[in-house]
Every structure is written in C-alpha cells, then in structure tokens.
C-alpha cells in the first residue's frame, strides 16, 4: 500500500473537482492506501461545519466525516479560509487547518500526488 496526497484548488459548493477529490480519496482508502487531502482557495469552504444538505446539491460533510473516521486526513489552507471568513470556531470537527507547507510536506513523502487545479 502507499500514500496518496491530493491537493484540491477548486471552486465552491457543487464543484465537480471537489466531488472528484473526495470520491477518489474514498476509493484509495478502500484499497488500503493512506490519503491526505488538502484544500485551498474556494475549496476551503469544505471545512465549514453545519452546511445544509439539499437533495440536488453536492453535500460533502457527511461523506467526509465518514472518511475521516476511516483515516482520511483533510486539511484546509488556514490563510485561504480566514481570507474568506471561515474561522476556527466555524470549522468541521476533525478538519485540520495549516499553512501551505503542510501540503508540501505531505506531497514530499507521498507515493503519488494529484494536484487538482482551480476552476
């Protein structure tokens, strides 16, 4: 087994890239790999807790909590989050916040890295 680091610099709610990143994380965990998921830019909105789940809207909080329970490490860029008014007290439990060097360190010792660009 190996380690996969995914960096996601996607758009907001409903972003296909963000959905993809979470689903790929799930598949990799299922295969027994270690997964680090980093979100930057608008994707940091993923870290906000208590987002309402609507039927025809992408809602990732529940699957994300399940994946964190299975060992997914998910981290938001602290600066990007703060710049958007997403503060610590509004952050989903288990969702880490670090500066960009966390992502670089994660990528540095990963077996595979996938950097998903912005939209």
């Amino acid at each position: 087994m190996g380690k996969l680091t995914i960096g996601c610099f996607s758009s907001l709610v409903g972003s296909m890239n963000l959905d993809f990143a979470v689903k790929l994380s799930a598949a990799a965990l299922e295969k027994g790999h270690t997964v680090d998921l980093w979100v930057s830019g608008n994707a940091t909105m993923l870290s906000i807790k208590d987002q309402r789940a609507f039927k025809d809207y992408s809602s990732l909080e529940k699957p994300l909590k399940e994946l964190m329970g299975k060992g997914l490490t998910v981290t938001a860029c602290e600066a990007c989050a703060e710049a958007r008014g997403y503060h610590k007290d509004n952050t989903m439990e288990g969702f880490k916040r670090h500066s960009m060097d966390w992502y670089l360190a994660s990528a540095f010792d990963a077996d595979r890295v996938l950097h998903i660009g912005g939209e």
Partner: peptide, 19 residues
C-alpha cells in the same frame, strides 16, 4: 473504469499525474 480502477492505475501504472 471506476474510482477503484483509477486508484490502481495511479499506483501501479503511472508515476506522475497532471490535471
């Protein structure tokens, strides 16, 4: 392919990725 296949491709068939 499905998501599981993509994971296998990444780890077994390819070294680097681009998006």
């Amino acid at each position: 392919v499905n998501y599981g296949d993509v994971v296998d491709l990444l780890f077994n068939n390819y070294e680097k990725t681009a998006w």
